[in-house]
Design a protein around this nucleic acid. Structure first.
Length: 161
DNA sequence: GCCAACGTTGGC
DNA sequence: GCCAACGTTGGC
């Protein structure tokens, strides 16, 4: 199983919104590197839900990949700002996955994350990185959970939604 | 293939 | 709202 980090602006769609709706297609990603990460995701992978463009930014919860990559519906919708006229049904350019909530976390601000030496290699903390979907190593995952005071068993045994 | 112009991200 | 950093576009 792999670990990931997904950014979202809480003013648009935050972790609480994911809890409310129960399941969400992670559409609108229009960056090739981020898309490739989406395509590498497997059902059952876990991801941190990160709040960007907020005050303060940081990790708000954990979610699970409920469906691996399939074509992003918005690329075919002329009314969507994510419409891509160069994309075709036969050869879709953009992908999305479905995510479901697992549990909220005690909020871990970006500042707090910067203070954890185990995370110094995370793209999230590198200057100038804007990647909205990125892998998280097992060591980084564990370091973050440990700092949050959360044990694996607290959510790995949680019922699937 | 280069690179200037432009648009976007996202912390502050 | 500012702006640094980065990605994309398109003329040449």
């Amino acid at each position: 199983m792999a670990y990931w980090l997904l950014k979202s602006e809480p003013d648009v769609f935050g972790y609480q919104d994911l809890e409310r709706v129960g399941k969400e297609p992670w559409n609108g990603v229009r960056n090739y590197q981020a898309r490739n990460h989406l395509r590498a995701m497997q059902e059952g992978d876990l991801a941190f839900f990160y709040h960007s463009n907020s005050n303060p930014p940081g990790i708000a919860g954990i979610c699970r990949i409920a469906r691996s990559a399939y074509p992003d519906n918005l690329q075919f919708d002329p009314d969507s700002k994510y419409f891509d006229p160069k994309s075709t049904e036969d050869n879709p350019r953009w992908s999305m996955v479905d995510v479901v909530p697992v549990r909220p976390l005690p909020f871990l601000s970006l500042d707090t994350l910067r203070g954890l030496p185990e995370l110094e290699d995370m793209p999230l903390l590198k200057k100038g990185t804007r990647l909205s979907v990125m892998p998280v190593t097992a060591d980084e995952w564990q370091a973050i959970l440990k700092h949050a005071g959360v044990e694996d068993a607290d959510f790995l045994s949680a019922p699937a939604r």
